[in-house]
């Protein structure tokens, strides 16, 4: 009786570690080992199939291009009226825009903002979803019921039109957009993460942790989160995709003032009537294609992640 009580009063991870090692638990709680193991899993997941590996390399190439490209291909800062809307040539191999600036340089520079924003959005959204989802799953009861109901209600609100409407009320900039997008997508992620946590919760090692009465935050951060890595990465890339869609869409509609990105290029090219001037079609086509490649790479990564960590899901 005494022994059980002392066990119940344990609070710090070190003490818990000790209990687990003395009770002969097979589960190692050392953060570094588990982290390494998870990284290995991620690596295996990425390269387990050709599509996933290809998506990853594509994403890497786009990131490298956006980070280092502008050094070799700086944007034309001045307009050159002699080469307006030119076809591809040796000098401008994707042609020039309506101000005579090089299009390839714009493509190279146009990804950074988009990627950073998408990354920011996905990070906030994942953190929010993880927090709410695991909280709801772990607390359970009435709280859980209400949260699930709210998420259901939230999911029926059309997201992109809401963004459009909101842009009529606020002036969104890059950062507020990231936050708004993340908040708007809470419900979808909340549901998937809640379900995942519930299924993890019923596994033995989590039940052991609960029986040992470990603090909930400890269980969330040390037991549950590490086991959701692949799942989180898959959702992260899908969130990035949604963020890119929303950003490019809003920018194209002229509702979001951003400086230099592929969405702006499409918007400008469209408004400059490039479709009536097939010579300069790369002004429109190039940013469209890169956005497609970026989104495909994200979707491919997500798919191979899901397949690796959840082989029963698709066949």
């Amino acid at each position: 009786m005494l022994k059980t009580q002392s066990e119940n009063n344990l609070k710090t991870p070190q003490e818990i570690n000790q209990v687990l090692s003395t009770t002969g638990s097979a589960y190692q709680l050392k953060g570094t080992t588990r982290f390494k193991r998870n990284m290995r899993h991620l690596r295996e997941a990425l390269f387990s199939d050709a599509i996933g590996a290809f998506g990853f390399l594509l994403l890497l190439a786009i990131i490298l291009m956006s980070v280092f490209g502008p050094i070799w291909f700086p944007l034309d800062t001045i307009s050159n009226p002699e080469v307006i809307l030119n076809a591809p040539s040796a000098e401008h191999f994707l042609g020039t825009d309506h101000l005579g600036r090089d299009i390839w340089a714009q493509v190279v520079s146009g990804g950074r903002e988009l990627l950073v924003l998408a990354f920011l959005t996905a990070s906030i959204a994942v953190l929010l979803g993880l927090f709410l989802g695991s909280l709801s799953a772990l607390i359970g009861g009435r709280f859980d019921e209400i949260m699930v109901f709210l998420a259901d209600v939230w999911l029926t609100i059309p997201r992109f039109p809401l963004l459009v409407v909101m842009s009529g009320f606020f002036t969104l900039n890059a950062t507020t957009l990231a936050i708004v997008l993340a908040v708007l997508s809470w419900a979808g992620l909340f549901r998937t993460i809640r379900a995942e946590v519930l299924s993890l919760r019923s596994r033995d090692f989590i039940e052991v942790a609960f029986m040992l009465d470990m603090p909930k935050t400890y269980i969330i951060f040390k037991e549950i989160l590490p086991n959701m890595m692949g799942f989180v990465v898959a959702n992260f890339t899908l969130l990035m995709r949604a963020a890119i869609y929303a950003q490019v869409g809003l920018v194209f509609l002229g509702l979001l003032p951003l400086d230099q990105n592929w969405g702006v290029m499409i918007n400008v090219a469209w408004n400059q009537g490039v479709i009536y001037n097939p010579d300069a079609i790369w002004f429109l086509l190039a940013p469209t294609i890169v956005i497609c490649l970026l989104i495909l790479s994200l979707v491919w990564i997500a798919r191979s992640m899901e397949e690796f960590f959840n082989p029963g899901l698709r066949k």
Binding site: R241, Y245, V248, G249, F252, I266, I275, P278, I281, L284, L285, T288, I291, C292, I295, L296, V299
Partner: peptide, 20 residues
Amino acid sequence: SAIPDFLIAIFLILFFGVFT
């Protein structure tokens, strides 16, 4: 299913209305 709908629209506009 991966490509945003408006990019498909752009491709189709180019395919049907712009390219010769």
